[in-house]
C-alpha cells in the first residue's frame, strides 16, 4: 500500500478547476518534487495533502485513511500526527526562541521535551543557536529551525512548500543536504518548488499544468545532492 494515494482528485471553485482529475501515488520513503507554473494547482494539491483543505471530488488516502471524508477536527489531528510542514516564509513564532519554536510542535502534538528539541536542532546544525530569537537568525538558520520543527514529531511525510524560495545558494544547499539526510533515514519527502535545480534532486518530479498532472519524470541519476548549473 502506498503511503499517499490521490484517486481522481478534483478541486473546483465555481467554473475553475484548480485540480482536475489528478491521480498519483507516493511510496513510503520516497522523495517527490512537484513543479509547475503559478496557477497550476500546486498550492491546492499541497493544501489537500497537508490536510488543510478537502477535494471536491475523488479520494485521498494517507496511510490507508481517506482524508477527503474527514472533518476539520480530525484533519487537524491527522496533520499533527502524520505531517511535518516546511514553509517558504519559515513562519517561526517571533517571540519564542529557536528551541521553543521546535517545542511548539511537540506542545501541540504531545508533550514539550527540551532535550529532544535540542537534539533536533543539533541535527540541523543549530545547537549553538537554540536560545536565539528568530530575528537573531539568518534566513537559512530560520529555515533549518523550521525543518527541525517539522521533523520533531517523526511525521510520515514532510511536506515542504518552496523551502528554498527565500534562501541564497549556500543555504539552499544546506537545506537540500538536510533533505537528503532525512530521506536516507527513511523519511518521505514531498517538495513543492519552482526551482528546477531543487526539483531535480528528488527521485521523481511531477509537473502540474492547469490543474492536471502534465508530466512525470524519474531521476535516473538520483544522488540526493544538489548540482548547480552555473
Amino acid at each position: 500500500m502506498s503511503l499517499l494515494e490521490l484517486k481522481n482528485v478534483s478541486k473546483i471553485y465555481g467554473e475553475l478547476h484548480a485540480l482536475d482529475d489528478v491521480s498519483l501515488k507516493v511510496e513510503k520513503g520516497e522523495w517527490v518534487s512537484i513543479m509547475g507554473p503559478s496557477g497550476s494547482g500546486k498550492s491546492t494539491m499541497m493544501n489537500i495533502i497537508g490536510c488543510m483543505d478537502k477535494p471536491s471530488l475523488g479520494e485521498v488516502l494517507l496511510d490507508g485513511v481517506d482524508i477527503s471524508k474527514e472533518n476539520k477536527k480530525n484533519l487537524t489531528t491527522i496533520r499533527r500526527d502524520k505531517i511535518g510542514l516546511i514553509f517558504q516564509q519559515f513562519h517561526l513564532v517571533p517571540y519564542l526562541t529557536a528551541v521553543e519554536n521546535v517545542m511548539l510542535a511537540q506542545y501541540y502534538h504531545s508533550m514539550p521535551d527540551e532535550k529532544e528539541a535540542l537534539e533536533a536542532l543539533e541535527r540541523v546544525g543549530l545547537a549553538d543557536r537554540a536560545k536565539h530569537l528568530p530575528s537573531q537568525l539568518s534566513g537559512g538558520e530560520q529555515q533549518r529551525v523550521c525543518v527541525a520543527r517539522a521533523l520533531i514529531n517523526y511525521p510520515e511525510i514532510i511536506l515542504a512548500d518552496e523551502p528554498t524560495g527565500n534562501l541564497d545558494e549556500a543555504n539552499e544547499e544546506i537545506v537540500v543536504d538536510l533533505f537528503h539526510k532525512l530521506h536516507s533515514e527513511g523519511t518521505t519527502l514531498i517538495v513543492v518548488t519552482h526551482d528546477p535545480e531543487v526539483a531535480e534532486v528528488a527521485q521523481r518530479t511531477l509537473v502540474l499544468r492547469s490543474g492536471k498532472l502534465h508530466k512525470e519524470k524519474i531521476n535516473e541519476n538520483f544522488t540526493g545532492k544538489i548540482h548547480f548549473n552555473d
Binding site: 488543510m52 496533520r79 510542514l85 501541540y108
Partner: peptide
C-alpha cells in the same frame, strides 16, 4: 495559521 498548521486545535 502556523499554530493550526502544525497541529493546534481550536
Amino acid at each position: 495559521g502556523l499554530r493550526k498548521a502544525i497541529g493546534a486545535s481550536d
